[in-house]
Design a protein around this nucleic acid. Sequence first.
DNA 1: ACTATATGCTGACAATTGTCAAAAAATATG
DNA 2: CATATTTTTTGACAATTGTCAGCATATAGT
Lengths: 324, 324
Amino acid sequence: MAIRTKRRTAGRFSGESIIIEAAWLYHHDGLNQNEIAKQLQVSRATVVNYLQEAKERGYIRISLSPEIFNNHKLAQELRQKFNLQAAFVLPHGIGSDEEALMRVARGAAKWLPSLLKRGDRLGVAWGRTIYEVAEALEKIDIEGVTVSQLVGSMATPYGFTAEICSAHMAQNLGAKCINLHAPAVLSNPDLAAHLRNEPIIHAQLEALSHCNKAIFAAGSCEPDSHIVSCGLASIDDLEWYIKQGAKGVLCGRFIDEQGKPIIGNLDKRIIGVTLDRLQGLDIGLLVSQGVEKVTPMLAAIAGGYVTHIVTSDKTAQLMLDANN
Amino acid sequence: MAIRTKRRTAGRFSGESIIIEAAWLYHHDGLNQNEIAKQLQVSRATVVNYLQEAKERGYIRISLSPEIFNNHKLAQELRQKFNLQAAFVLPHGIGSDEEALMRVARGAAKWLPSLLKRGDRLGVAWGRTIYEVAEALEKIDIEGVTVSQLVGSMATPYGFTAEICSAHMAQNLGAKCINLHAPAVLSNPDLAAHLRNEPIIHAQLEALSHCNKAIFAAGSCEPDSHIVSCGLASIDDLEWYIKQGAKGVLCGRFIDEQGKPIIGNLDKRIIGVTLDRLQGLDIGLLVSQGVEKVTPMLAAIAGGYVTHIVTSDKTAQLMLDANN
DNA sequence: ACTATATGCTGACAATTGTCAAAAAATATG
DNA sequence: CATATTTTTTGACAATTGTCAGCATATAGT
């Protein structure tokens, strides 16, 4: 009785499994299934079976270029875990945190225009990151966009102010710019209250409270935090807020783990948007990067201020690893 | 005038190039082009374009499992470089040369049946490798196959002889076996000549000269070569042939670099096939493996005796690297 | 501002690939 | 040695994917 191999062997060219031969001809030599069927003397349907088996056996690996797609994967995971509309994860790269920040800022700048459409009113916060986004923006022109400065101005040792952030952004977006002609923080609550009632300031605050989109960064509550080094808060202020459970800073306001604003002495002296105005926007774009920003970012997300996010892969991974 | 990015940006989910998003959805999430088109708000034709660009840009890598396909690739290269009908390259593996020889022999045994069809007359040479092939053959039954012993018998220290090689092979193939009832080498040319004219031997030699397929190994010309250790040739014989340019041994005959037989004292005393009979066969299956076999194998191929080859990846690579 | 050129997008059609039930072949079983 | 069971192959059809000419939009040049 003739005993033969069940499955046909290729024989013709390679002696190896006909499955490997089919996979080779298809993926390496680029033949189509008909040509392969003819060459291997089987039906085309059989070639389909062989190719599927080659896939199942793992002979063929379709890998998505990791450095490109890993970040995309992280973005999807961020999107899912935090219920965001969209996320953009950039490679941290091998360089310093400084370089990563620049890359994230450039990424946000590249993305921002496609998130805006005519008639939008964009609120712009202030900080190093936002400044770099504004600088990195290529000059484009979307009709009828208005940019609003979300917090008052501040003299900084860095040479950039809230005014410059929003002005540059408006300039590069070809947008109208509404600045907030007031200091970010005053020494005295009463003065702040009076200033808020000044007609010009009142109008500006009114305008920014009608923004439908906003771009901001998360600030950390660590002692070397920006909010202290720029002079907005004193070390004592910071310690007080931390004692109250502050986990981050958003537009000059301290927030707790759930993203709820912590109202304290400082808040009464600040001229700027209140956080309730930043909830439920069409787009709340959080641009931040770095280990120390993870907790603040999570808090901001928990508070419902964020619909879109731009960050680095490293930061994204830390956010995903955080067990909450 | 509104200046926008030329290509639509995905915006919706990832901010990254829409091309990456399309590639991701297609290859990772397994969506089809219609679903992707709907999701990205473009036509399906555009999705096709995106996917093609992703391929061109190298975002998607389809790699063929190297451990599987490398040998297939080597086989193809052998086939091409040496103008062979087919090649079968087996992994040398991490073990000893002994193990590799066994693997190659088993590979040849697995392949051989698919190379035979009814009515074939298969010439079988002799040697360690061929013996292992005969042993490894699974018992099958191809009608009307005849196996011929290509060279006379020889007492060997290994306990296998040309007779056993061909007999086992015939047995496992369910084939008729024509043995050569004579010693492989005689001490005296005249005696050999007389023996060749003996009717029974003459008939057997006549039979084997009508083989249409043959299986053989290549022997090396090194001092520890099998042809010496088995007693077919003396060291003096070997040295004489090497001086004449011998590069290998095929069926007991010395060949030069071009595969041409070198006729010497020994040839007149041998009972066995002459090499001219091994040229132009339907199939000449060379089964050999090992560094020291590279030169003999190349010589055998140059002589036109080989249409099919079974070897190890290591050996195949050396053959391909040889600059001729 | 207007036209020229390039680039990207689309719809309609062509080609390729996937599915599935049934036939054929191989193997197991009574 | 006939029959049952499993595996492999196949043909016909369905779904998916690829192509290409023409259209729309963007950029460049004057």
